[in-house]
Design a binder for these strands. Structure first.
Lengths: 145, 145
DNA sequence: AAGATGTAATTCACATGTTAACTACAAGAT
DNA sequence: ATCTTGTAGTTAACATGTGAATTACATCTT
């Protein structure tokens, strides 16, 4: 079997797809001076409630060293707070702050509109199907495989 | 319409999918001390022949500032060469060197085997279909949309 | 020919990705 | 009780991502 050309390789296709999608969201994030990763952290915490760093890193798909830096920056801007877990000096619970919630709520309408526009252009059925196929790929390739 | 949960958003799904796929290739790249991006540059040049920086950046999905650094590193390791374009002092043609070609050839079998394994686990038909859907998404979202 | 405009590439500054090493703490084994 | 092993989180070092500013060169205009 020939290796795929760069024009038809899964890693490249996934990378490009992500780029064209994120291009729609970047202006919104830039206007509020937060990065894509900080936005992911906020949304995960808003959805899931307080989490420990490891679990947050997993859910937001951010590596631990990056999360350490992101947490630090977001604490300084008071978007999140941290509380030590008693009985275990290593862990800490990270929680979204009221300003963090306010930011989420402020951006939600625009965020929904961007998603709608993408669905409209690409097709709602195809969109759902693509999500299913990606989930399936992630399943088949993650862990022991 | 509600904004999607982080568990079912296109950007997150694309990111995770790429991660699980790249996890299979990273050990190979690490053994040869090249980065994922350097590997993309090599493959694009091997496939397309000599290119100018802007075109190479587009085809490899690498931003110009990153490409500048990558080119510098790869020139020092003599994987690629650069030749100024006469009649335009700004441009230069970047070309893969014999050692670059040798590296590609050395890695090709393992690369093909990894792709085959992915196809086998995920399904060849699904794999092709996913590539089609990603291409279609890229089409529908890129540029003017 | 001089100035205005446009383009290719680089540089800068800062954030994140990535791997390895390290610290701090916890829990189990002897 | 000490020692080992394991786990959570951080730090370090380097590469890349990202947007803005800058440099170098071309081209167009007048």
């Amino acid at each position: 079997m020939l290796p795929p050309s760069t024009r038809r390789s899964l890693p490249m296709a996934l990378l490009r797809a992500r780029e064209v999608i994120m291009a729609h969201f970047r202006p919104m994030l830039a206007r509020h001076d937060i990065t894509e990763q900080q936005w992911r952290v906020l949304r995960v915490l808003a959805e899931s409630g307080p989490l420990e760093a490891t679990e947050l890193a997993n859910r937001a798909s951010i590596l631990p060293p990056s999360l350490t830096r992101i947490i630090k920056a977001m604490e300084e801007r008071e978007f999140i707070s941290r509380n030590k877990v008693k009985d275990d000096g290593r862990r800490a619970l990270l929680a979204i702050s009221p300003s963090g919630v306010a930011l989420i709520e402020e951006l939600s309408p625009e965020r929904a509109a961007i998603y709608e526009a993408i669905e409209k252009r690409y097709g709602a059925v195809e969109h759902e199907r693509l999500l299913d196929m990606l989930e399936s790929l992630i399943q088949s390739e993650s862990a022991e495989g």
